[in-house]
Computed example of a mutant assay.
Amino acid sequence: MNINWFTVIAQIINFLVLVWLLKRFLYKPVLTAIDERDKKIASQLENAAAKKAEAEKEYDKFLQKNDIFDKERAAQMNSVYEEADLEKQRLYHGIREEATALRKKYEASLKQREKDLTVKLKRRTKEEVFAITEKTLADLADTKLDQQVVKVFINKIENLDKDNLSKLKNAFNNNEIINVTSAFELSPISKSVLQKTLKDITGLETDFQYSIDPELISGVEINTKSYQLSWNIEAYLEVLKNNSITKDNDNESA
């Protein structure tokens, strides 16, 4: 078999030219494209990793902020609960103090009403007693109550001790006006008897002024700047009342 070296050489040259052409126009661009593709993919992976890291970092920040927010919210809620509890206690104490004040005011009002009622009842009872007494005296002895009261008052003056008698005489010696106050209008006879008795006891004359004060409870009172003397039957009623209360208590104990 004969070898055509020219053909072989030509084919070798063609093969080398083909390889060079492939390398020059096909293989190198493909490798370059592959390299660029690899670089692009690597860059994208790096960007993805960076974004992932940044996302993880942001997520951590979010978790931290969320934790801080939860703590702050819990603290604020605790503060709100504490303030609400304090306000509740304040309102409770305020309401209790107001209730206590109202209760005390109500009790004071009841006591005052009871006191006023007692005073009115006492005064009404005394007025009735005095009216009955006056009528009884008028029916039995044909004597007015004012005359009887003046009579008792004169008897008290006549039985004064030395000290009070000396004070009474000094009042007359100083020419002081004698103010005579009674629970009712004294009759001319009662006034005359009273003035004569004082003149006989002191040996002096002076001016008299008469006035009425129902609070004396059927009594008579003489007043000067330096001396005072009075008599009424309220003291006797108080003794009677105390004796009645004592008897009622004794009966309850029995």
Score class of each variant (00 low, 15 high):
I95N: 10
F172Y: 11
K51T: 06
I12F: 14
T202L: 07
T125Y: 12
T32Q: 15
K162C: 00
A141F: 14
N170G: 00
S244N: 05
K241Y: 10
F6K: 15
N78Y: 02
Y81S: 13
D161T: 03
E54C: 08
D213Q: 06
Q76V: 04
I222Q: 04
S190N: 03
R73C: 08
D67S: 01
S218I: 00
F6G: 15
R123V: 10
D139T: 12
Q195A: 15
N2E: 15
I132V: 15
Q44V: 02
T7V: 08
K65N: 11
I212D: 08
L21V: 06
L18C: 04
A42S: 13
S187H: 07
Q112P: 00
S226Y: 07
K247A: 14
A183M: 12
V8Y: 03
V19S: 11
M1I: 06
Q76M: 08
G94M: 11
I95A: 13
A131R: 15
P188G: 03
Y27D: 11
Q112Y: 01
I212E: 11
L63Q: 10
V17S: 14
Q89C: 00
E128W: 14
K191N: 04
I154A: 06
S226W: 02
I212F: 06
S182N: 08
A55T: 06
K115D: 11
I245N: 09
K111H: 09
I222A: 05
I154L: 05
Y227E: 10
P29Q: 02
Q228Y: 00
E252A: 04
I154V: 13
S230N: 08
F130H: 09
R123F: 07
E98Y: 00
K196Q: 15
E36M: 05
I217D: 12
K120F: 14
L110E: 11
